[in-house]
């Protein structure tokens, strides 16, 4: 290989940075969605690099379901300070309190659907014209069809059959008043790329990604962390195991996996050997074959 070549991680990084700078240039009031998961951590990290030595020109927003792993919130506040960003919190609890959404009840209750309302309300009240997310095309088949720049109508809805073609590195961000865009700089990254980049850049990540002892409850082939938000009935099998999270969402929908991985290099080895997708442990995706497409059309990520 000759001198003027860059590695695949450098090329993905350069592409993501290009998209983030395009966001800052083409939109008036963009925001990056931050969940505390590894993909949104990467967005924060790349934002820091894209505008260095200046500060990140847009805020990060956490749509807080209130059902978080404690470690996520601790990590969030540490990370935001480290990258010198501004944080906005949109609370699902507030949406529940002021009657915008109703909490689901029963054994499978989650705030996964409710958070779409909170997100759309926050986009409207802050007048954000672009929400940047960490979704990747390798995650899920409906996301595989997503554009880098994805147009949303005034109801925040996605029209998958009528998407704008994207060619070269020319991104069309034209829209009418009241409409907004979702932008996905990590579209071309795979789970493996994300972990390799985290290892390379030595980005700190929340401790729940590493193996730790935790009480879990078995439910339909998935293990959920025991918490006040997960209903446990008589006959449910609860045990203490050494586990880790492969994705980080809220407590009611994120499965945990048996694992001994205690370093990022261990995780990379585990991902390389894994034969199950990372969203294989997500309860929210299992509701139906098109559950991601249905939620996305309504404005979910």
């Amino acid at each position: 290989m000759d001198k003027y070549y860059i590695t695949h991680l450098q090329e993905l990084e350069s592409e993501a940075i290009f998209i983030l700078r395009e966001v800052a240039a083409q939109f008036e009031n963009p925001v990056v969605l931050f969940s505390g998961g590894k993909d949104s951590i990467l967005l924060g990290w790349l934002s820091m690099k894209a505008f260095s030595p200046a500060k990140i020109p847009y805020p990060l927003m956490h749509v807080d379901t209130g059902h978080n792993f404690d470690e996520t919130i601790e990590y969030r506040d540490m990370f935001i300070e480290k990258i010198g960003a501004r944080l906005v919190v949109a609370s699902v609890q507030e949406s529940v309190d002021n009657g915008r959404v109703q909490d689901e009840t029963g054994k499978y209750a989650s705030r996964n659907v409710a958070q779409t309302t909170t997100l759309l309300d926050a986009i409207e009240s802050h007048k954000f014209d672009c929400a940047v997310g960490g979704a990747r095309r390798d995650e899920e088949k409906a996301r595989a069809k997503e554009r880098f720049f994805s147009h949303r109508d005034e109801f925040g809805q996605w029209d998958p059959k009528n998407q704008r073609p994207e060619l070269w590195n020319l991104f069309n961000a034209k829209k009418n008043l009241g409409e907004h865009f979702r932008v996905f700089p990590l579209s071309n990254w795979t789970e493996m790329d994300v972990w390799q980049y985290i290892a390379l850049e030595q980005i700190p990540i929340p401790s729940i990604y590493f193996a730790h002892k935790r009480k879990v409850v078995h439910r339909d082939g998935i293990m959920l962390a025991v918490s006040p938000y997960v209903q446990i009935d008589e006959g449910d099998k609860v045990e203490e195991l050494v586990v880790r999270c492969r994705t980080v969402g809220d407590l009611t929908s994120t499965g945990v996996w048996k694992s001994d991985a205690s370093t990022v290099e261990d995780i990379i080895k585990e991902v390389a050997a894994s034969r199950i997708t990372e969203r294989g442990g997500r309860f929210d995706d299992k509701r139906s074959e098109t559950s991601m497409e249905d939620r996305k059309i309504k404005g979910y990520f």
Partner: peptide, 9 residues
């Protein structure tokens, strides 16, 4: 696993 430092796209 260290191969990735040298992979092209």
């Amino acid at each position: 696993t260290k191969n990735y430092l040298n992979m092209e796209l």
